[in-house]
Design a protein around this nucleic acid. Sequence first.
RNA 1: GCUGACGUAGCUCAAUUGGCAGAGCACCUGAUUUGUAAUCAGGCGGUUGCGAGUUCGAUUCUCGCCGUCAGCUCCA
Length: 649
Amino acid sequence: MASSHELTLNLVLPNGATRDVPAGTTGRDVVASIGPGLLKAAIAVAVDGDVFDLMTPLRKGGAFVVLKESDPRSLDLLRHSGAHILATAVRRLRPDAKIGFGPAIDDGFYYDFEVDKPFTPEDLEAFEAEMVKVAAEKFPFLREEVSKSEAQKRFADDPLKLERLAEFSDDEIISTYTDGPFIDLCRGPHVPDTSYLKNFKLLSAAAAYWRGDETRQMLQRIYATAFWKKDELEAHLHRITEARRRDHRVVGKQLDLFMFHPFAPGAAFWTERGTLLYNTLVDFVRGLQRADYKEIKTPLLYNKGLWETSGHWGKYRENMFLVLDSETSEHDFSLKPMNCPSHYLMYLAKKHSYRELPLRYATFDVLHRNEISGALSGLTRVRQFAQDDCHVFLMQSQIRDEVERLTKFILGYYSAFGLTARLKFATRPETRIGTDELWDGAELALREALDATGLPYELKPGDGAFYGPKIDFDVTDSIGRHWQLGTIQLDYNAPDRFDLNYTGEDNADHRPVVIHRAVSGSFERFIAILIEHFAGAFPVWLAPEQVRVLPIADDFAPVAREVTQRMRDAGIRATLDDGNDTLNYRIREAETMKTPYMAVIGKREAEAGTLAVRERGQGKKQEVVAVDAFIARVLEEIRTRALPVAVES
RNA sequence: GCUGACGUAGCUCAAUUGGCAGAGCACCUGAUUUGUAAUCAGGCGGUUGCGAGUUCGAUUCUCGCCGUCAGCUCCA
């Protein structure tokens, strides 16, 4: 903190002008000296990229920028201040509530309270109304820097704050922020006063452990969000309701795709329709991999010796399903939670030449992981699933080309669904195996491969696995949500543990590198994402039922049956609904099931050899086409995997 | 796993202070033969998740178990 001893701070404004101010001058004074108009719009300032609010004394000089609402960094201030305003309101209505932490988070903010009884939805409404009042009262956020003993005095009634205070060293700056009746131990920064909070919404209340520690007491956390602009808030709330409407658990039931049963918690039952969807996806991946991957199947059950070799028997065992061996009466066997070790066994079964590399083993086997019961959630967190798993065995020198190839493969797969991805490059973590030279080489190869794709990527230093760096694929769906799906991970550990070798050009043994690759994470989770992405209205090639044929009356059922059969023979998933119900009723049924096409056959069509085609979601708009032309058109849509014209929103 | 909420017909939901468990849809039967989002009538359907307890009496109150949902990283 050498800079805090500077007497004069040199601030460089964006236009190049400089300003010398005494250390301890607040941002507000500096901004005011630039212009009163600017002060009105200012939310905070940044010095050399560090954000300070207007009431904080500046202790260092550097590049000086005034943050207005338009600066994305200012939103965090609004939200963090929102948390204080929430606490202000809660304390007014529930003076006994002890306060925990209240930070801004990605989509809003929260505040933790220790209370005897959990908050009810009615409580939240009352708090929200009170927050409106607090905002209207326009309390300035007052910052004070105090000694530790003074702070302990101020928070004498707040045990959670005292606990935090006890952790401060004596030379740290301890600050408090006060807005009206509420004082909080807080580093800041904050907006100037409570009236800045205009567009906010309390979302939910739920329990959270104090400091995320399950051995500590439960607090009541209130989640909320806030935006500068009303339409931004409304868009966010709309996204929340839209996500609820598309919930794959609800849609999956409506479309009759899968179910769960208490006798198999965390494992999906796939209905006939769901299985069609599932298999279509698997077939798609299989087709893409036909040329240069070797698909293999390996056992589901293994002796613990394999997991001891792989290292999973130690820490990961609690996540594995152990199976009792009736001869030894011990849990010596386990269902595989991943395919990697079994692929190594397959690799070890033969001698391999450098000429074979890169060697790509792909597997769609069922995996089991014993997730804790509270983590289970629909298809997104399950105990039984299948990955589109692949392990590449290759030489160090091949990493760059291979990663580039895998990256393009994964992105190509996503684009088939209209999904876009952001790439994240995770480098060496603090605890890791392998020499620095090895990591240098691996990271360089990955980086070169990434650069070669020409795509932007985000750097996540220290986020790699202990055995190697990785690239993660963060996918954005049609309502703007992010999902971490694919991954490309370099592994220098497994080849050593399993003593994997290949014979090089020099006729000597060499150690290959292993790349773990997954594209959709698991089919289960990916299907959940697709259901929500498409809101159940799958593109024709994916739809379990592609065409529903509807004769208007019994007289046309024979023709309809014949047409249905022709479609099926052509490879279209067509069904006939010649039920006793009215046409209106049957159309409604088909629409509800999000069937892409309805083909209606009445007198006119039967005589002319045509179909009155109704497209999903297009209402009465219909098109009369020849049966053959329609079949050709659907087949073409399947072949090109055409996406719905507008991914419904 | 922990905290909280929830669990009623295949589905979505009702059931005043504890007093015979209902509706719509689905399903079955019959009538109707339908021209682009629900034809009409009748009928079937339940050990109220499971197991204990309190009570004259439990869907309702208490406890245990099972399951589902939300939250449990984002740091004063």
